[in-house]
Amino acid sequence: MKSVFLKEIRGFFSSLIAYIVIVVFLIITGLLTWVLKNNMFDAGYSNLDTLFIIAPWVFVFLISAITMRSFSDEKKAGTLEILITKPLTDFQIVVGKYLAGLTLITLALIPTLLYFYTIYELGDPVGNIDIGATWGSYLGLLWLGSIYVSIGLFSSSLTDNSIVAFILSMFLCVTMYISFDLISSLSFFSGIDYYVQWAGINSHYQSISRGVLDTRDLVYFISTTLMFLWLTKTRLESRKW
């Protein structure tokens, strides 16, 4: 698992994907938080809400982009055959790739701690920021990223065309993130709208963003990630059917 993880990380950095993802993420979130209209100064509140509203959408693109090649390219190039005929289990291959993707988005998030520090210092009085909610939001963002990475891997395992994988992954990420909120307001779901929302990422992301660590949210994040990883592994095994 460790060897697959390291190989993926090396692949990200030697093909420039890693640098591009980190830089693009920081440029978009940086501009929206500090420079463009409705930035943090216009709002006048000492919080990082802009970042946490924007990031899930930026992640849809970036995580789909970093995971789209993970299996589709290996299938196309035939390197999957090399991986599978090495003494690695399918599970080790999937989890190694998942951890590499998660590490990359963590690396993209770390520099935004500078935004956190800046707002902490800008607060009046200094430190007038809801620290619990901010850490909660970071944690929520990581878990959201974790689900996106597993969705991206699954999409990539379905096809040997990385563009198809990219589009499918974006679609599934948006679906999981927001669409349950949107359809819950349909009259068809009246009465059970809460449970419909509950199936989407957003309700849990909002909940953890308040700084409350609810085990139900954690169970949701972990089980959704595992479900997509399991689907990916099953898809890999399907060559045997």
């Binding site: 060897s3 190039a77 035939g78 390197t79």
Partner: peptide, 25 residues
């Protein structure tokens, strides 16, 4: 095993790739 058409990770350096294979074993 050397599969047909010899698939390789073209993004990796020769040494990186062989180290990866060595670490699997």
């Amino acid at each position: 095993y050397l599969p047909e058409h010899n698939p390789l990770y073209t993004d990796l350096y020769v040494k990186e790739y062989l180290l990866f294979c060595a670490s699997i074993f």
